[in-house]
Amino acid sequence: MVNGFIRVNELYKSFDQQSVLQNVNFQVNKGEIIGLIGPNGSGKTTFIRILNGVIRSDKGSIAINGLDPIKDGDDIRKMSGIVTESAGLYHQMSGEENLRFFSDLYGVANKNRIVELLVLFDLIEHKDKKVGKYSTGMKKRLALAKALLHKPDILFLDEPTNGLDPDGIKLVLSYLKKYNEETGTTMIICSHVLHQLENVCHSFAFIDKGTIVEQGTLNSLADKYIDTLKVQVETTLKPTGPNYLGYKYTDVGNKKLVFELQSKHEISKLLNEILKTDEVFSITHMNTDLESIYFKVRGIQHD
């Protein structure tokens, strides 16, 4: 990964004296998939629009592969693919007509690309149907196909799984991950459905009230924010007393005990001891998932 493919420093934006983004600092490496996470109205969409040069920031600097979104907007837009929340498709045109139109706009020379993407996103049978008659999931898949037409270097995905059924979510997310591995495309995925992003993104940026409050990999964020590691062990062990080997635990039923450890390095020690007398069927980290870390960070910010 090339460091600092996208660099944002001290970015500010307000509309009609209402501040939308303030002091945003953000960095993405080339080939990285980053999850931009925050509640509705936190400024995610405005931030993406500024990166694409369709909105001017009030203050701050942006460099995308060394290019400035306002001065070199068309160059950035040529190498970017974007899925907006509303999909932005022409409902009175068929799926294939939409892709043909956008492939002309982006100067795609390979005419087979449209069929390739229609097949890939399971839309080939519906290619002649008007997009107005597509289901939400089909529209979202077509919007993704549209964004990938010109094989962009950067993909901006604003809520790419909104409206998709579980099969659609799996299809889209696994494709994005595979596409990133094969092509090294940098991706910024905005979402508030955290568990979907956990296995797709390399790192995460939390945005709250117009500011990036934290950015890093899941491991680095866990190390920084999780003081006590909660581990659920499914075991035949039935300890007595409030502690086991000095570790606090809670019996949550169904042969499941939740232990509180100081670090992940203590897991082996705990399991070794249990296995001397009892069986262990499974072990699950309870508070190092994205959702737990996100709420922890938000909690700290709001205190």
């Binding site: 160059d75 837009r77 040529k78 974007i82 932005g88 498709l89 022409y90 956008f102 706009l105 100067g107």
Partner: peptide, 9 residues
């Protein structure tokens, strides 16, 4: 759809 047009090159 104007957003899609303005986001294109």
């Amino acid at each position: 759809t104007l957003e899609s047009l303005l986001l294109s090159p």
